[in-house]
Design a protein around this nucleic acid. Structure first.
Lengths: 128, 128
DNA sequence: CTTGATCCTCACGTTGACGTGAGGTTTTAG
DNA sequence: CTAAAACCTCACGTCAACGTGAGGATCAAG
């Protein structure tokens, strides 16, 4: 597979794939002419990388976790990193949940005050 | 209240408070000598701003929803913005939850392979 | 053989929320 | 009164994950 197809399949840009290689996250063979050659599995791998990025992991953090996908052997260091990141994600979920609840409150108040057409006409009626 | 106390109370840097003012998120009076003067309520306000930042809102987005806190009057535009951001946070929570679950899987596999001391000695026993 | 699509390697540009001095004034504790 | 602490305004630095040309080679189709 060439880079364009992988990009399309994984839903990322070609530039992103080159960047991932630069970071050591994806390894690509080269054709004699220098074009990158990816195995089919690269698409899934990149999707997983994207998942971790969207979860807020840095390239370095991903780099420390990815080898496990390949070898299925975890050093204590890798296991710890996995747990650390999971815990970080947990607290971030909690933060987001709090923020969402606060926004829900505000939206409640906002839509309440938005009934003002009726409320307003009522008070206008009362005023007249 | 002066800037240092607000920073301490809200758990942010002095620089951050100046930045918030620059963005129009916090308004501060000035003493005759030019020092910023905040009302007590500034601490809670800044905490709320931090909550929104940590939820991924940009300064501009915060600027569009904050007036509601002051006036308790929401324009349709503000209400829509509130809903948009809440929905964005919802999907982000979903993304994070998926990522957390994937990591939990991996941690499961990792700790499983980490029982290898016993497993290993067992297989060593079997091998001998 | 040619041309348009795809690929390559530099290498600088972008964005947001601050960090970090530089150089100077004001406040406060003793 | 004096020194340290706190404050002020510029204004440049940072960091990560790419975006965006520049300038050129390679590939697939007709």
């Amino acid at each position: 597979m060439r880079i364009g197809k992988v990009a399309e399949g994984a839903g990322v840009s070609v530039r992103a794939l080159r960047y991932y290689e630069e970071q050591g996250l994806v390894i690509a063979d080269r054709s004699p002419s220098g074009h990158r050659q990816y195995p089919e599995s690269a698409v899934e791998r990149v999707k997983f990388i994207q998942l971790l990025y969207s979860a807020g992991l840095s390239s370095k953090a991903i780099l420390q976790v990815l080898p496990f996908l390949d070898t299925l052997v975890a050093t204590p260091r890798m296991t710890q990193r996995l747990k650390d990141e999971r815990d970080r994600i947990r607290t971030q979920i909690d933060d987001l949940t709090r923020a969402r609840d606060r926004l829900d409150e505000l939206i409640g108040l906002a839509t309440e005050s938005a009934i003002s057409p009726a409320t307003c006409s009522a008070s206008v009626d009362a005023a007249t």
